[in-house]
Design a protein around this nucleic acid. Structure first.
Lengths: 150, 150
DNA sequence: CTCATTAGTCAGTTAATCTGTCTTTCTGGT
DNA sequence: ACCAGAAAGACAGATTAACTGACTAATGAG
């Protein structure tokens, strides 16, 4: 351990940021090469939280921890790009349902595959056991952070 | 492991994102409460890479992986907030040196401390050994991602 | 049946990036 | 010593992804 810059050391936060940035870049670049050129990282705030039967904007906003205005902006963009369809919720006249189009299903499948492939590449260098241990540790950390007061 | 949403699973990338977001939020909120209300996460793109003798904008830009225009925007903002001083580089008439002010030193020290405190809180729940193992694993992953072709 | 709550929209703002173009300064090769 | 090209930064403008505040329309509980 050479003496490092105060904020640049081996902090969990910095490591997570570097890894996340790298993987996100990798995955969206690969997705672009597979035809999803107009797919942006911010879109995964929608795709990640969409449930199969469709979701309301307000629910997506809560899950993604953003305002409904911001979520509406994202779903609207995805609708224009033919990744989702936005239709009235038959059970509530105020609400809309955001549902994946076939292209949207493709995109989700592709992102999922690319994400798994990226991990597999890491596993070939680290070993599956170690990678699994890191993943478990991260999941535990996330759990701790989500309910801080014990 | 319940069957999860395709993109919402226990992927390393997602875990890193969640953890990084949470820690960043925590740390900058705490910094604000300690008087650094005008300090923003984007500013750490500067602070993290500043070396003690001062750095050139172009070097900071390279280190932070952004354009020099963007870096100039950030350093300018930090200068207006009295975290850094920007002065001519005596060794090169084209260049400027960005150096920390006393307040900037304070900010770096505070962010570093808050960051370490956040990790310490995690350690009390996970155990130091496990946390260290995760950190080592993450560092290894980052290493792999930085030089992908072996 | 009314009124508070909820879902979403509209308008405007801000933060943090980007690209392209320009000026100034430096430097290496002849 | 000169000049051509590289490098450092500035200026102008665009874009993306968020935000807040104020609004409309539909729901549902008492």
């Amino acid at each position: 351990m050479t003496d490092m810059h105060p904020l640049d050391g081996e902090r969990i936060a910095q490591l997570c940021r570097a890894i996340y940035d790298n993987l996100r870049e990798q995955i969206y670049a690969a997705a672009a090469q597979e035809g999803f050129v107009d797919l942006r990282p911010s879109h995964s705030n929608v795709l990640r939280h969409l449930d199969p039967a469709g979701s309301r904007i307000v629910d997506l906003a809560v899950r993604a921890d953003m305002t409904k205005q911001s979520m509406a902006y994202l779903t609207d963009a995805l609708a224009k790009l033919d990744y989702v369809e936005i239709r009235p919720d038959p059970t509530d006249g105020r609400a809309k349902l955001v549902v994946l189009t076939p292209r949207g299903h493709d995109a989700v499948a592709t992102l999922t595959r690319l994400s798994l492939e990226a991990e597999a590449r890491i596993a070939t260098r680290l070993g599956k056991a170690k990678l699994d241990a890191v993943r478990d540790g991260l999941a535990e950390i996330r759990g701790v952070l989500e309910k801080p007061g014990q």
